[in-house]
Amino acid sequence: MNRRTLLASAAALALPALLPGARARAQTPATPVPAGETLKVGFIYVGPVGDGGWSYQHDLGRKAIEAEYGDRVETTFIESVPEGADAERALTQLALAGNTLIFATSFGFMDAVINTARKFPNVKFEHATGYKRADNVATYDARFYEGRAVIGTIAGRMTKSNKIGYIGSFPIPEVIQGINSSFIHARKVNPGVEMKVVWAYSWFDPAKEADAAAALIAEGVDVILQHTDSTAPLAKAQEAGVIGFGQASDMANFKPTPRVSSIIDNWAPYYIRRVGQILDGTWTSHGVWLGIGDGEVEIGEITEAVPAEVKAEAEALKAQIASKAYHPFTGPLKKQDGSDWLAEGAVATDEELSSMNFFVEGIAAQIPS
C-alpha cells in the first residue's frame, strides 16, 4: 500500500469529522451497560508492549482504564500485530471473544477496522490516527507536530555541527508534518541548521532504527529525532555521544542524556472518557485531533543537559502552543521548491496539514514516491 498517496487522496473527504469541533455522526442512542455487567475492551498493537515507545504508551492507557473502572471493565490486548490481513484476524478474534469496544492503535489497521466493523455492527471500534469512520467506528489522533516544534527548538539550540537527523517511519502526512515542524523551529533559533532524513519504512524495527541512526551519525549529525517506536536510536546516540529525544513515551532510562526531553502521547484521558461513554450509553462515532493544550501531547522533562535559557525558551513555546497563541505552521513559509505556501501571519489549515506531501524550503532531502 502506498500509505502517503492513500491518506492524501482521502483526507479532503475525511477532514470535517476529524476536526476537534466536528459533530458526531447521527446515530441511534447507545444502551448503557447494566449495573453488574462487565464491559470487555480489546486492544491491538503494532509493536510489543515492551517497545518503550508507541505501543507501550497505548498499553499504559489500557491500564489506566482498569485503574479507573475496576471490575466494571475487563481489558485484553494482542501485541505485535502486522498491518494488513493479520490485523483483521486479530480484530475478529477480539470481537468473537465478546469485546464490545475495540481500540486499534496504528494507522495501517484502518481498512481492517472498517472491514471488521461491517461484520460486527454491535461492536464499537476506535482507530488511532486514521480517517475512515462508520456508525460504529470512531477515529482519534494527536497533533504530534506541536511537540516537534518544541523539541526542534531544543535541537536547533543544542547542535554543534548544525546537522540534525530525523528518522522517519513512512512518508505519510503525519510524519512529514513532524519533519517540517522540527526543521522550521530548529532553523528559527539557528539559521545554519541542516536537516538530514533517513526512512526506516517501519514503525517498529530496532535493527533498522539503529542502522538509520548510525547512518545519520556518520553524516555528522549530533542531534537525532525520530518518528519510530523503539529506543534503538537513543541507544545508538548514547554510543556515539550525541543527543536525542524520547518518542511517544518518555524513554526515561536514557536520561539525562542522550535523551534530553521527549514527546509523550498521553492516551489515558481519551481512553477513560470513551470507555465511560460506552458504560453510560453516550458513545457516538466521531473524529478528534488533540494536542498540547488538550493534554494529549506532552513534553517530557527537559533535563539538566539542556542549558537553562534553552529550557526556558522551549517551555515558553510549549505554553504559547497550548494556549493557541501560536501555531507551529505560521507564515511566511515556502515549499521546498521555493513556491509560496503561507503568507506572513497566515496559519495552515487542518485540511492542508492532513494532506501534507511536501517539505518546506531549506530541507534538502526528498520525499520518496
Results as ranks from 00 to 15, higher is better:
A365Q: 02
A319S: 09
K160D: 09
E344C: 03
T76L: 12
N136K: 06
Y201F: 15
D111W: 10
V223N: 03
R133Q: 15
F254K: 01
G108V: 00
V113P: 00
P368C: 07
T159N: 06
T139C: 14
E209V: 04
G52K: 04
A248K: 13
E298R: 08
T303C: 03
L94G: 09
V46C: 10
G220Q: 09
I167C: 07
A97R: 12
P269K: 09
N190H: 06
F125C: 02
F329P: 05
F77K: 14
E296N: 15
G53A: 06
E298V: 08
D205S: 12
A30H: 12
R89M: 14
M110C: 10
M251W: 03
P16T: 02
I217D: 01
L96V: 13
W267D: 10
G61K: 01
I321H: 06
M158D: 03
S230L: 07
T282Y: 00
F103Q: 02
A10W: 14
A268K: 05
Q93C: 13
A85I: 02
L101C: 04
A155I: 05
F109G: 04
A235G: 15
K160A: 07
G220F: 05
Q247E: 15
A85G: 03
A232Q: 06
V193F: 07
A104I: 02
F125E: 06
A22C: 08
T349V: 07
K324L: 10
Q177P: 02
E304I: 02
T303G: 07
S354P: 01
D222E: 05
L234F: 04
T282H: 05
L317T: 04
V123L: 03
G178I: 04
S106D: 11
R4V: 15
F245A: 10
F359D: 11
V137H: 01
R274V: 14
I176S: 08
D135G: 14
D222P: 06
A12P: 04
A30D: 13
A10D: 15
A252M: 12
D205A: 09
D340T: 12
P256I: 02
V198N: 05
V223L: 10
T92P: 08
L13C: 11
L19G: 12
H185R: 00
